[in-house]
């Protein structure tokens, strides 16, 4: 039973990591690429670490796994936020598919 859960979580984790990598290549601009890297990647890592915690089933590993997940979930959004923000400030090109930019109006006001 536990093995099934571990295999399932590992499969999900690997699948999402692959999707994150594919997204990184296929998305058109900096901002959409961060979407793929920061989140789908986080989810992939989360499932893999969870699988490790369930597989080893001892307190030390579980606590470390919990801390890894907690820290990744706390820091990944901050990194994504900073990269996209700086990218916008230095004028990183936005994909021509972009339909709306409500931050541009705000920038002119500031």
């Amino acid at each position: 039973m536990r093995e099934i859960l571990v295999v399932f979580l590992l499969t999900v984790g690997v699948a999402f990591s692959v999707v994150a990598a594919v997204g990184l290549l296929r998305f058109p601009d900096l901002y959409t690429r961060i979407h793929a890297a920061a989140k789908v990647g986080t989810m992939g890592l989360g499932s893999i670490v969870l699988a490790a915690a369930i597989h080893f089933n001892n307190l030390g590993v579980s606590i470390r796994a919990f801390l890894v997940i907690a820290f990744v979930f706390m820091t990944a959004p901050v990194a994504a936020h900073m990269i996209s923000r700086v990218g916008y400030k230095v004028g990183a090109r936005m994909s021509p598919k972009t339909v709306i930019d409500e931050l541009r109006d705000e920038d002119q006001k500031l």
Binding site: A15, F16, V19, V22, G23, R26, F27, P28, D29, Y31, T32, H35, A36, K39, V40, M94, S95, K97, T98, V99, I100, D101, E102, L103, R104
Partner: peptide
């Protein structure tokens, strides 16, 4: 998002 990434046409309409 995974579905968006993997769809062949990739119908993206990003925006802020």
């Amino acid at each position: 998002v995974a579905r968006t990434v993997l769809s062949p046409g990739m119908k993206l309409q990003p925006g802020i």
